[in-house]
């Protein structure tokens, strides 16, 4: 708990007066006070102005659009109240997309974060060529997502894919990866893990370096094994970071679109926006894309975007609660 609460504190202590002495006698008290009161807002203003223009306004405008029968091309967009939402909640394909998103999210996020933790733990010790290892971890992340998906789609190719060639070799039946729900989710989760495991490992590593070495030394003297130290010291000490990565990863996995889109493009043109011939791997973001940018139904897509936003909030909140309750062996 105390660790988790540390984040907001920097705002609360009384601000130091860096320019108090400099401004000195020349400035009158009210101007000084005005400066003290207004300047901080001025300094943070750029962000908030930009956020208002590119974050808040689109958010509210999307809500407004979602109440209309708004076709991208037509000039008349009649107001229809909550009809889009009613239609959306009755649309089985929307819930199918929600399920796929969650499924792919869990399949990719859970192994990814565990693996990242282990990798970070392994790297959190004096090693030769440390920088090399760390850069290597980040490499998959800086690779363009299109390149990653194209290459993985070839690996998972039905006729000439490497994975199927290997399965053939060990005597297992070939898999048509795009044809089935489970297999397509596994394939897409693999692509996501490939890109994001190293990134999360680096964040964990940074947090681990801030854990005081004395605690480990004491634990070593007490005879704790490396695994025990990971579980008993490292994880509780970096819990805020874990919470952060869980939230960021959850948000990220709720927005997966490029992977299923390009993965489906291996089946046919039409199956790429529908995420497979039977929507086996159509995610929420892809569903939104299909409605908004293939059918040009912006009102409906906006409604989907808002429901998706609320779902993200719910899922992130749930994950936050779960992770916050996670207890290690060390009571800090």
């Amino acid at each position: 708990m105390p660790v988790a609460h540390r984040a907001p504190t920097p705002e609360t202590p009384p601000r130091p007066r860096p320019d108090g002495s400099r401004a000195g006698a020349a400035t009158s008290p009210w101007r000084h006070r005005l400066d003290r009161k207004v300047s901080p807002y001025a300094y943070v203003a750029p962000f908030f102005l930009l956020f208002a223009a590119f974050g808040l306004f689109p958010l509210i405008y999307t809500a407004w659009v979602s109440l209309h029968d708004w076709n991208l091309l037509s000039s008349a967009n009649p107001f229809i109240g909550l009809d889009n939402y009613r239609e959306l909640f009755a649309d089985g394909y929307f819930w199918n997309a929600a399920f796929n998103t969650l499924s792919i999210g869990v399949l990719s996020a859970a192994p990814q974060l565990v693996l990242a933790l282990v990798l970070a733990h392994l790297l959190n010790r004096p090693l030769r060529a440390q920088t090399l290892f760390r850069i290597t971890l980040l490499l998959p992340n800086v690779t363009s997502v299109v390149a990653v998906v194209v290459i993985f789609s070839q690996l998972f190719g039905r006729d000439f894919g490497l994975v199927n060639a290997f399965l053939d070799l060990v005597g297992i039946d070939r898999v048509y990866w795009q044809a089935h729900v489970a297999s397509s989710h596994v394939a897409i989760a693999t692509m996501i893990m490939w890109r994001w495991t190293g990134y999360n490992a680096l964040i964990y590593l940074a947090a681990m370096q801030a854990v005081p070495r004395e605690i480990y030394e004491a634990a070593t003297i007490d005879g704790a094994s490396a695994a025990r130290q990971l579980w008993g010291i490292t994880i509780p000490m970096i819990r805020p970071t874990i919470i952060f990565t869980v939230i960021v990863t959850t948000i990220g996995s709720m927005q997966i679109i490029a992977e299923p889109l390009l993965f489906g493009a291996q089946v046919s043109n039409g199956a790429s926006t529908t995420g497979g011939t039977d929507r086996q791997f159509q995610t929420l973001a892809l569903y939104l894309y299909e409605k908004g940018f293939r059918s040009f139904e912006f009102g409906y897509a906006s409604a989907a975007a808002w429901v998706m936003f609320l779902l993200v909030v719910v899922v992130v909140g749930f994950n936050y609660l779960v992770v916050r309750r996670m207890r290690g062996g060390l009571d800090v």
Binding site: Y176, Q178, A179, H180, V267, S268, N269, G270, A271, T273, T274, T277, D278, R294, S295
Partner: peptide, 21 residues
């Protein structure tokens, strides 16, 4: 919406071809 209709039909044949339905 010629394109959307064609996609629906094409996906249907795809499901038959993939043995889904």
């Amino acid at each position: 919406k010629e394109g959307d209709v064609r996609t629906a039909i094409g996906n249907g044949l795809g499901r038959v071809e993939q043995g889904q339905q």
